[in-house]
């Protein structure tokens, strides 16, 4: 049933967010630490559990597939509710800081990706 897929997804997300919130409290930071990441790992774990016998039925998978396909429209809605006006009204310093941070981070990707691959080849 489609609802089984949606329920599985909901279960994973709630457990992940709960664990992330608790992690944040343990680390004494006012933020959720990796909740979504934990939820994703849990979903991967549960959906691969038991191999072929306990595999999700195609209809159950549709409950997951629908929300996965809704990802881009949801991101478009997310873009439309960003506080862009405030980002631009912060003055030059905020804009320069944001732009410089992004540029440096982009430039760092090939460096780390290369480094990561090399160390893997060595091992």
């Amino acid at each position: 049933m489609v609802i089984y897929g949606v329920a599985l997804l909901s279960f994973c997300m709630l457990v992940g967010v709960l664990v992330g919130d608790l992690l944040g409290q343990v680390m004494q930071v006012e933020a959720n630490v990796g909740g979504v990441g934990i939820a994703m790992l849990l979903l991967l774990l549960l959906s691969n559990l038991g191999g072929r016998d306990a595999a999700l039925s195609p209809i159950t998978e549709r409950g997951l597939g629908f929300w996965s396909a809704m990802y881009i429209p949801i991101v478009v809605a997310m873009a439309a509710r960003q506080n862009v006006a405030e980002a631009l009204s912060g003055g030059w310093m905020a804009i320069v800081a944001g732009v410089a941070a992004v540029a440096a981070s982009f430039a760092m990707i090939p460096v780390l990706a290369h480094f990561g691959r090399e160390s893997r080849d060595d091992s």
Partner: peptide
């Protein structure tokens, strides 16, 4: 953003953290 217009308040819900994270988790499948 756009969701401060009462007519489009739903965009705020659709693009909020709850649905965003739900869809992100779904992509892991």
């Amino acid at each position: 953003g756009l969701s401060d217009f009462p007519l489009l308040a739903g965009v705020g819900l659709m693009g909020g953290a709850m649905f965003r994270d739900f869809a992100i988790v779904a992509t892991a499948f």
